[in-house]
Simulated assay, not measured.
Amino acid sequence: MIRFAVIGTNWITEALIQAARLHPQFALTAVYSRTEEKARAFASKFDIPHTYTDVQAMAQSDTFDAVYIASPNSYHAEQAILLMNHGKHVLCEKPIASNTAELQAMIAAARSNNVLLMEALKSTLLPNFQAIREHLYKIGPIRRYFASYCQYSSRYDAFKEGTVLNAFNPVYSNGALMDLGVYCIYPMAVLFGSPNEVKAEGVLLSSGVDGEGSLIVKYDEMDGVIMYSKITHSELPSEIQGEWGPLVIDKISSPDKVEIRYRDGYVEEITRPQNGAAMYYEVEEFIRILNSGARESATNSFAHSMAAMEIMTEARRQMGLVYPADTKSQGGSIHA
Rank of each mutant, 00 (worst) to 15 (best):
A66W: 10
F46T: 13
T313M: 03
S74Q: 06
F286Y: 10
R261I: 08
A5I: 13
A277L: 15
H76T: 13
I132P: 01
F42N: 06
Y186E: 09
I289Y: 02
V171E: 15
A325F: 07
S234R: 12
Y280V: 04
M1I: 10
Y156D: 07
V248A: 05
H335C: 07
Q60L: 15
E243L: 10
F192M: 03
I260A: 08
V90G: 02
G202L: 10
K38H: 14
V225G: 00
F159C: 01
A336H: 12
V198A: 08
A278S: 13
E314S: 09
S238I: 10
P324I: 13
G162E: 02
N166V: 09
S214L: 02
P187Y: 02
V171N: 08
S229G: 01
I231F: 06
V248G: 04
G87Q: 06
T100Y: 01
G245T: 11
Y186V: 12
E93L: 12
L117F: 09
K88T: 13
G224T: 04
S173E: 02
S292V: 12
V217N: 00
H233M: 14
S154A: 12
R295S: 12
M1C: 07
G331D: 07
A97G: 05
Y32S: 08
I240V: 15
A294V: 03
E314P: 10
G276I: 10
N114S: 14
F46Y: 15
P95C: 01
I107D: 03
G211Y: 01
T13W: 05
V171Q: 13
V203N: 03
L83K: 13
R40F: 04
D210W: 00
S234D: 01
L83N: 09
V283W: 03
V31F: 12
